[in-house]
């Protein structure tokens, strides 16, 4: 499946990390770009990914944050 984009900016805890978890656990997951607006959400997503096997990610920092997640 092609790259999927999730815009989770402005959502309260735990929605950003929970929606990311659902998307990464989806069988169709190949590559995912997640947009969040707080460092807290980035940390939560990174902590989630650190407990998952077979995924890698990078973070782009600007006005908001973009977490790019893909299969290893």
């Amino acid at each position: 499946m092609a790259k999927k984009l999730l815009d989770l900016r402005g959502l309260s805890c735990p929605q950003p990390v929970f929606e990311t978890k659902k998307a990464v656990e989806d069988p169709s997951f190949e590559e995912l770009e997640v947009l969040v607006d707080t460092k807290t959400s980035v940390e939560n997503i990174q902590r989630l990914l650190s407990r998952m096997a077979g995924v890698t990610h990078a973070v782009e920092e600007g006005e908001d944050f973009k977490v790019i997640i893909s299969r290893t």
Partner: peptide, 19 residues
């Protein structure tokens, strides 16, 4: 640290996260 007592319980139930 984003210390949160409710989040502590929630993250265990929802994500199995003990942070």
């Amino acid at each position: 640290t984003r210390f949160c007592t409710m989040g502590a319980v929630r993250d265990i139930i929802l994500m199995r996260d003990f942070h």
